[in-house]
Design a protein around this nucleic acid. Sequence first.
RNA 1: GUGAUCGUAGCUCAGCUGGUUAGAGCGCCUGAUUGUGGUUCAGGAGGUCGUCGGUUCGAACCCGAUCUUUCGUCCCA
Length: 469
Amino acid sequence: MATVKAQLARGVRDFDPEFLNRRKWLFSQLEEAFMRYGFLPLETPAIELNQTLQGAYGEEGDRLIFRILNSGQYLESLTDEDWTAARSGQINRFTRLVTEKALRFDLTVPFARYVSMNRGNMVFPFKRFQMQPVWRADRPQRGRYREFYQCDADLIGSECLSSEAQMVALYAEVLGQLGFPSACVRISHRKILSFMAEALGLSSQSRAFMVQLDKLDKSGKESMSTYLTEQGVSTEVQKAWWILIEAQPAPPELLALLLQFSSITQSDLPASIMTELETLTHYIEALRVPSSFYRFDLSLARGLDYYTGFIFEVDSGVKGMGSVGGGGRYDNLTASFGVDGLSGVGISFGVERILDLMIEQNLFGDIPIPAAKVLMATTEPDSMHNLLACAQELRTQGIKTDLYAGDPKPKKIFQYAEARQIPVVAILKTKAERELQFVLKRLTDSAHIQVKPQEIQDWVQGNKPWNTQ
RNA sequence: GUGAUCGUAGCUCAGCUGGUUAGAGCGCCUGAUUGUGGUUCAGGAGGUCGUCGGUUCGAACCCGAUCUUUCGUCCCA
């Protein structure tokens, strides 16, 4: 028989029971937190139509979408012209002709599609969370895969700043619980960034300005200064701007700095910004978020351009490791589907990175191991039916019971129990007697005892003392 | 997308400037020992050297292609 080499596709992983136990635990923590804040679960299909995803991520994003080849005689409809175009390298045109479906690239666009399709039956404001894998045809690197989980929560259909405030509280609560005491939500505002661009005389290229700003922590202060000088920003104005960027004070002082910058540059600071900053701060305080868990940081820009209001990014507090989440307010998530006027706030947890960090920082210390409490086994072939009956009795008592399939040597039984982290082994001895007897042995200290079948649960649950000799 | 890089037993790796039957440790299997498992001892199995092609009398080793890994870059989680 011909065999194939057992091999994984590039950039994807298997998940072993130990890893899955941790991931499931993390996801359950997140799920409980979302539910506590009134978010409901939503899932969308792995497969979306090309038209839904096309163009939503820019030209470079398009290239990273995994396409699904059409079924059937999909080449029949191609004209000579199509073939000529394909041979001359017009691969995009060809791709459009032979694929109409693709794997989802993120959770935001499918969510926008869902809201657009179902808005008639939905009650707004609508809150959902979603934890599902997404696929990207990117080149894999450490911590970056072609299949990975995203975890998003959105509140759509309200402009109230209580949404932003609760998102900040949610971040603080979850990361605190998971064991990141130094985590911090950085908060900025797209309108402040626009105001800054305008005040610097860069309003015609505010996009480029924000890209530069977003890269500040990587490319450094000097390259930012060079950029500003190239754009004709005077050193005096630059100096005032750096104060604004680097100060990171809480709103009363932040507002003062903004006003100061506004007067130096003779530009208008929109009044709405000032009230929004104050209101958000009050709301966050009302939610009793410790002040160490958030700070206003106007150097935060974020790459995605659909944000229109407050934006967030979460620093894990572990040095050298960057962001573990981010989000912000958007005004027109569903505009591309012809639905206007839905403002919302979305946040995302970088669950893959959080998992890596928690494993690295040893934060999974005492989560429960899903192992069975007792391993039932026998070395006698004729005893299997009795063994099965006893195991089933324990299971009806709610005790997690594993059963060694077969009648192996004792060595095998104990090695199995040890590998599976099962604390107690129960070996059935029938012998000539009519009554069934089990030898119970506790693996940690080799304490052992002979018991009747109906007594097993008492010992397994620790209700009776072990003979430790 | 782009530049480099890695690939030898289940795992971690040796393997000299190309030269007979490719090695070690750990793990695995068998037997003995053992408090019915953990210790110790003895023995054993397992590799077309990532894949395909080329150079050569001869390739794990040299050359090419391809796949995979890791590291930059683009972008992002």
